[in-house]
Write a protein that binds this DNA or RNA. Structure first.
Lengths: 183, 183
DNA sequence: AAGAAAGTTAAATAAATACTTAATAAATTT
DNA sequence: AAATTTATTAAGTATTTATTTAACTTTCTT
């Protein structure tokens, strides 16, 4: 048999690996570690996996798989599965990318909104103190006012970000942007 | 003067730094380098800046500022400004977070969709070859079909991601999610 | 309850990446 | 056109981050 003829199984593996590489690369760009990114992409083609199977399949250490799988659980891209009569823990990838998207972005956006709104609140109080302070020169007061107003305006964005996250979590966004619409 | 009484100017700086730290921290989480994140957050409170002012203000090297500012330009978070009769280049931060959001996410999502759709296309061709191949056992064919279908279904997500990006770029999303709605 | 198997935490190492210094290129002024 | 100022590229260094090895804890089985 000529070596140009590929075995069906290896061709399947090759095809899978193209997709795995691509998914992992994009996850990398979003700040997910390489091990976690490769793991998710690998699990995407599997029903469920144990830590040992992951270690075997990716050729990495077990602790690495353990921490990666936990990180993926945190962003809701992997779920623990219960397998009766089986001692090892089993995990399954979230295959629905819409749900993965939700888990990843909504969490991030809500966190961003909270963190920055908290900081803005504190800063605005400080600016008010400066504005009220009799030691403040007119220039200083004007600057404080300008910054206060800038922050006030920016709040609109963070509220919108929370609204966006909420409309994704609730699924309401799909009324506006249907999932089945082919372009 | 007691040291518990704060000078207005330093109080302003302190307040700004709270927000700068918070903005930079969230940008860090999105994979923007610390230097670029701090730079954007600093510029957020400035009209415009030169590379030397950036270096001075952040206490970092000029090349670091140069590469950071370029990265920020790529994601549309900083724009070059023209200052007549002034030799040095000047740059201004995009103060409208809605525009920053657009620049950052739409670019990422469009890139993700393109990359993964390309990989999927290639992989699907391979799976078809395997399905057609007379050397393939029924098991192999079944697996190839399963993977093909899974990839086919996932395309819906990438098309939706493109639609989402498009609706943000066009501003149509704000018809669905108004920016002024306070919660 | 003791032993074994699986998973996690902690410390150490390896790898990646961000940044700085030094050198080069580009642009503006005299 | 030469010189000076500004910006960028490249090479090297330092820092951070990811991963592994080793120790420990938990959980299950006999």
């Amino acid at each position: 048999m000529s070596e140009s003829i590929e075995q069906p199984q290896s061709k399947i593996d090759e095809a899978k690996n193209k997709v795995i590489g691509s998914i992992a690369e994009t996850m990398d760009l979003y700040g997910v570690t390489p091990a976690a990114a490769n793991l998710y992409a690998t699990m995407y083609f599997k029903d469920q996996m144990t830590l040992d199977e992951m270690r075997e399949e990716l050729g990495m250490s077990k602790p690495s798989m353990s921490t990666s799988v936990r990180r993926l659980q945190e962003i809701k891209m992997v779920k623990k599965t219960f397998t009766p009569g089986f001692r090892k823990h089993t995990y399954a990838a979230e295959k629905d990318f819409f749900r993965s998207f939700m888990g990843f972005y909504c969490q991030m956006w809500e966190r961003e909104a909270k963190m920055n709104l908290d900081a803005i609140e504190e800063a605005q109080e400080d600016f008010i103190d400066v504005i009220k302070d009799s030691n403040s020169t007119p220039d200083i007061v004007a600057t404080a006012k300008k910054h206060y107003d800038q922050l006030e305006e920016s709040k609109t964005y963070y509220h919108w970000l929370n609204d966006l996250a909420e409309s994704i979590r609730s699924g309401k966004i799909y009324e506006f942007l249907p999932t089945d619409q082919q372009d």
